[in-house]
Design a protein around this nucleic acid. Structure first.
Lengths: 327, 327
DNA sequence: CTAGGTGCAAATAATTTGCAGAGGC
DNA sequence: GCCTCTGCAAATTATTTGCACCTAG
């Protein structure tokens, strides 16, 4: 279970020096999993090098937080804990008040709601803390359960990112397949066909990647969900496909496709951007690019259709909206 | 702005005694607004009665938390703060890292998501903490804004409860009005008519109550939203009304109505129950009862319709489901 | 009378700081 | 050589506890 350790050799916050002690503390910190308190870390360091003072550990932790290597978390125990942020997405916590272990999760839905609330209060959010206190399954039933700890978060996050991307692709594929069948205009049909083919191809790429990831660590598949998302993106296409069923003309079909791709692009971009470098981040960002390409294709096609039809009235707002989203 | 102070004379957690000091500390605590630290409170108490030791303040605060009079909150400052829980619903916080003030909010949507997440991890939730750290409007723009503090939370909560109830009633009224127009069966029409009439009546009751509340404190109306809900309940009826527009038969209309009332009842009940005694709580619980009555009426009518039609097949599952929700 | 409640001072516990010496650049 | 880092011990801050005394029930 050795994690690739980051190359932090160039990491040096403003006006700070390297030092062997600091390097050692950092190394030990990154090698640990879970949430260490300053004292925990100090003890660990002492075991390897008794000549390191507690104050230095505190100072180094502060430095790590400033440098973005670590994050301070507070579980209301009257002391701070620290977690590495390298390749470790920002997340929320479920905290067992019985065994004092914590398990991590992320919810795009909760984040979206918090953003809305902050916006409603004109509050500029810097950071959000979500902590659910209670009793974990193991403490209640005695049955050992697969957990997500600091060591596995990254892999589980990548797994969930892939799952979401795959679900979205599937949903998109169905949408475009259906749209192809419905479109009357030959040119429009070609576009939908092309998009369907692309989705199919990406889908198989993603599925292969998923299989590889799981093959790497077979326990991965049974780990609980880390990223909760409630179909934020994949739901869009399902909704779009449902609308197609109600019967729409070519122009409407394109508009629905545009809406889906735009929403999807936005979701994946936003999610990809908020993470530290990680596989999951890369999956989201790559996927966002693809959705973006589809979106551009659809918009181009939509404009062409409008021109051919001479129905330019609805074109203007759509183009403006598209331009706005882009800035 | 004097708040009615609670009658806590009988308040006495297991094996505890009255004492004049404790009463004095409690009184001062309840008279304050905002989130006091133990030291803040200790200083306040000293001003009135210098003969009270800091330790007693700490002990009394602990006692208040045990007795459910106060709640401990931790804003990551390295010390605890306390807020009164009497007539003060559990809530979440927006915390300004600049002026160190905090403002309160509640989101049924966030809570619902957290419940789902906890359930997915088989985690028994005891308490949830949601804190949004950032910069408040006033600190950014310099413009004073209406805020919600400990003193006003209860009134704002009541206002929001009424607003939600009113929105739901409006939405329900529209639903039943439309359903009345659509129903072919005379008896079914009577039921919808009756429900529409009831909604209209309740609506005017609620609106009167809202006007009274606002008349009591004119600043109330401009206070920011405390309870965010995203149409959790009122959205149901809008959805139902949309379905009616697609054309449904009497039986389906009843089923849609049942679904709406059930969702609405559940929402208001759940919300009402989670609060300490307060106007908002009462509004929610009364409203839940009303929705419940409507639900029963609709279910009764649905059964009668099924019997008359001799189409008993779908009746069974619907009744069972209804029975299940009831336990 | 007796189980709590209370003040005071001392104890803990987590974290910070002053200072003199060590070490990176 | 200068500026930062480091250890150590002392200081600070929030909170708890021991103990002798006090008070409500």
């Amino acid at each position: 279970m050795d994690r690739p350790l980051p190359d932090l050799s160039n990491l040096r916050p403003a006006g700070s020096k390297r030092s062997s002690k600091r390097d050692r503390i950092l190394g030990i910190f990154l090698r640990q999993e879970g949430h260490l308190s300053a004292d925990d870390l100090s003890d660990l360091v002492h075991r390897e090098d008794p000549g390191v003072g507690r104050a230095t550990v505190y100072r180094t932790l502060q430095w790590m937080v400033d440098a973005g290597i670590a994050r301070k978390v507070d579980f209301g125990e009257g002391r701070s804990r620290f977690e590495p942020s390298y390749r470790h997405p920002r997340h929320f916590h479920l905290i067992c008040t019985n065994c004092h272990r914590s398990s991590e999760f992320l919810s795009s839905d909760v984040e979206a709601l918090m953003e809305e609330i902050a916006a409603a209060r004109s509050f500029a959010t810097k950071q959000a803390v979500v902590q659910i206190y209670g009793t974990c399954e193991e403490c209640r039933t005695g049955v050992k359960t697969d957990t997500i700890d600091g060591t596995t978060t990254e892999a589980v996050f990548a797994r969930d990112a892939l799952r979401i991307a795959i679900a979205t692709e599937r949903s998109g594929l169905e949408f475009y397949t259906r749209a192809t069948g419905l479109t009357k205009d030959a040119r429009g049909r070609t576009v939908f066909q092309r998009l369907a083919a692309e989705e199919r191809e990406h889908l198989s790429t993603l599925e292969t990647r998923y299989r590889e990831l799981v093959a790497n660590d077979p326990r991965l598949e049974s780990k609980p969900t880390f990223l909760f998302f409630k179909g934020a993106a994949s739901g869009l296409f399902a909704e779009g496909a449902a609308k197609l069923r109600d019967g729409v003309d070519d122009q409407q079909a394109l508009l629905i496709g545009i809406k889906c791709e735009r929403g999807s692009h936005k979701f994946f971009k936003r999610y990809g951007e908020r993470f530290e470098d990680s596989e999951g981040k890369r999956i989201f960002l790559e996927f966002a690019d693809e959705e973006r390409a589809h979106l551009d294709l659809l918009i181009r096609e939509y404009r062409a259709l409008i021109e051919r039809q001479g129905r330019s009235r609805p074109a203007r707002p759509a183009r403006e909206a598209a331009a706005k989203r882009r800035r």
